[in-house]
């Protein structure tokens, strides 16, 4: 247990200093979401809408920051380790790559939460958002499930990245579609219905919906419970799939020699 915790802390410490504390991730956590929020607010202004729903337009930016930060740090890690030649040292150690990736993704998500914090702060201080009727415990639980869903998706993507360097293109491409399909900055109902069907497979769509309902305090407990259940269930599916993929990846990269190639 001590070993496990020490490994966790060391991984997260190195991750924080090597990858997260850079202008690059600050851009992902803060600049990009701020730009998208600004586009939303300015479009509202251009359309003569004086009161856009801040839960989407501003706080949604925080979700976007968490997601973009996760996609890029989790995947950039593997790529950077591949490039720096440390990936094969990690794989060649007795510690499973899965564990290393898991701790790193955890840190990425915790760091990404600062994006959420910034968005909420901006909503309150700049736009006078009041949080009237907020169901605090439900928001916290929803947020925890959101984090868990993001983490499961993060380790899944990192495994894909370890599989092959070509998948990098694919993973880069995922950032926007998932922001788009999961409705980070608008309700899912804005999407054409066929798109709404695609997003059901992403756990974060459900926890996000629960969190928003809880922020407004409008949802019945039964509804929240079902949203939480769905989110947790799909997250676990992602987790189990990553676990399975991890074993495959470990064999695959040792067959192809992808481990050391740039």
């Amino acid at each position: 247990m001590g070993n496990f915790l020490r490994l966790a802390l060391r991984q997260m410490d190195v991750q924080l200093r090597m990858r997260v504390l850079s202008l690059w991730s600050l851009g992902l956590f803060f600049t990009q979401p701020a730009i998208f929020s600004a586009v939303g607010m300015l479009l509202a202004h251009a359309a003569g809408n004086a009161n856009p729903d801040l839960i989407y337009t501003v706080i949604g930016g925080g979700i976007m920051g968490m997601w973009s930060g996760l996609v890029f740090t989790s995947t950039f890690d593997i790529r950077a380790d591949r490039r720096e030649g440390t990936l094969e040292l990690i794989v060649g150690s007795p510690t499973p790559l899965r564990r290393v990736v898991g701790f790193r993704s955890l840190l990425n998500i915790l760091a990404g939460s600062t994006s959420m914090l910034a968005a909420v702060t901006a909503a309150v201080l700049i736009f006078d958002y009041s949080f009237a009727g907020i169901n605090v415990p439900a928001v916290i639980l929803s947020f925890a499930l959101l984090l868990f869903g993001l983490w499961c998706m993060g380790i899944f993507l990192a495994n894909l990245l370890a599989w092959s360097r070509l998948s990098g293109t694919f993973v880069d491409l995922l950032e926007m579609p998932i922001a788009l399909l999961c409705g980070f900055m608008y309700p899912i109902s804005v999407l054409p219905s066929w798109m709404q069907y695609i997003s059901v497979v992403f756990p974060i769509r459900w926890s996000l919906q629960a969190m928003r309902e809880a922020m407004r305090g409008t949802a019945a407990n039964a509804e929240l419970l079902s949203l939480w259940g769905i989110s947790l269930g799909i997250s676990l599916v992602f987790y189990l799939f990553s676990h399975w993929l991890d074993v495959k990846v470990h064999d695959h990269i040792r067959v192809t020699g992808e481990l050391h190639s740039i």
Partner: peptide
Amino acid sequence: GFTFGGARGLYGRLTAVENLRYFAELYA
């Protein structure tokens, strides 16, 4: 234990001691 030639395989932004500690953790 193994090393591969060249400058790759170390975390440049960490110190030598930090690099060694990091890998020590991977070897439990």
